[in-house]
Amino acid sequence: MMKSVFLVDDSSTMLMSLKSTLEISGFKVDTATDGEQALGKLKSGLKPDLIITDINMPRMDGITLIQEARKILRFTPILALTTESQQTKRDEAKKLGATGWLVKPVAGTDLVRIVKQVVPGA
């Protein structure tokens, strides 16, 4: 069965490029443009196999999204894909339940490799 990835980023080009990359690699992709919209979709019953979220976003940032999403989906892997590289932010995300931290830009093949690594059965 096709695995699903939920992309959250306020950049339309990021969403477009990541969605294309993952769809070419055989994943089903849903998207949201900020943390609040993403949380709404999760509360509506969306159950992706993986969440990839930006950190610096309007309305609700990625750190808050990780914290709230973890209350709904306890075991779904969550990757932060961001330009931010500060260790304090990494530690905070890790403490709130993030699975990994990727600093933009990430090569498409590296991203696909990591996604397959963290999604069971992908």
């Binding site: 990021m14 294309s20 990359t21």
Partner: peptide, 10 residues
């Protein structure tokens, strides 16, 4: 896929 990864520069 790699070319689309480089689009993250935007």
């Amino acid at each position: 896929i790699d070319a689309m990864g480089h689009m993250q520069f935007q």
